[in-house]
Design a protein around this nucleic acid. Structure first.
Length: 266
DNA sequence: ATGCCAGTTTTTAACTGA
């Protein structure tokens, strides 16, 4: 089974590139993030023609996640256990956002997640990011009571180590590299998960994100923030994993590249 | 080659992203 995760930065704007990539890479299961469309506006027909069922969770302008599957799609769950919301400065109340959706596909339990950005250390969005990650940990812990292959895939907006950004000196006092964020990843792993570390197709670190600006991609000024965490039943089945940087090339691309995992399930 | 921000809507500016 081939399973992938990709922050597409608008499934509408990315549709031609997405369909092309689905056709050539041929993943069985795909976790998408940053749909930037309402669930009902997802291009179900276009991906349906390629054989995918879809569980979409989106509200419009921001965020949005989905699971696509060619190997069955059941037990869809939208949102985390006791998921916190975000209260914008001008909002009267906090609101939950579409950042997590799960489905069981071909016997594998899959979560597609889009962790809040955090904006700046000390910002209310940063506190929200840490609360959200704790809810993700609690949700994983709850679902890991079952022994089936289980994985959380998505845009974590955290670089696990200093080597996972192009130059740690550029990230002083920045989000994505703080101890608190990394501790949240460790806490998630301590529920019984470990990271699947992908192969880079070029260079030494498999970055998954490069800013659109300032020639970041040609200069390989990237970050490794799209991650895959699996339980032992999942990770022991892994045959290969890589970041498909080819999908970041050319016109009309996302600023993220897909992470692909190949499994041999017993 | 990899090519110098892009996406959305509360649209012609503001906000978000990381």
């Amino acid at each position: 089974m081939r399973i992938a995760t990709w922050n597409v930065n608008s499934v509408g704007a990315r549709l031609p590139r997405l369909l092309d990539w689905l056709s050539t890479a041929g993943p069985d299961v795909v976790c998408l993030q940053e749909l930037k469309c309402a669930a009902e506006a997802f291009p179900f027909d276009a991906v349906g023609e390629l054989g995918y069922e879809v569980a979409a969770h989106g509200t419009g302008r921001w965020n949005g996640v989905a699971v696509l599957s060619k190997v069955g799609l059941t037990d869809v769950r939208r949102g985390l256990l006791d998921e916190p919301g975000y209260q914008a400065d001008d909002a009267e109340a906090e609101a939950t956002e579409p950042r997590a959706v799960a489905a069981t596909c071909g016997g594998v339990r899959v979560w597609s997640v889009y962790v809040p950005n955090g904006r700046e250390v000390g910002h209310s969005h940063y506190a929200y990011k840490l609360r959200w990650l704790d809810a993700l940990r609690a949700t994983a812990a709850e679902e890991l009571a079952e022994p089936r292959p289980f994985a959380v895939l998505g845009d974590f907006n955290i670089a696990p180590t200093d080597a996972d950004v192009w130059d740690i000196a550029e990230f002083a006092d920045c989000t994505h590299v703080t101890e608190a964020e990394r501790k949240a990843l460790t806490a998630l792993a301590e529920t019984g998960l470990s990271e699947v570390y992908p192969r880079p197709l070029k260079y030494d670190v498999p970055f998954t994100y490069w800013d659109y600006r300032a020639l970041c991609f040609p200069k390989n000024r990237g970050m490794r923030i799209d991650l895959v965490y699996g339980n032992p039943a999942f990770t022991t089945a892994v045959q290969d994993s890589y970041v498909d940087r080819e999908a970041r090339k050319g016109k009309g691309t996302s600023d993220h590249a897909p992470v692909v995992v190949d499994l041999e399930l017993g």
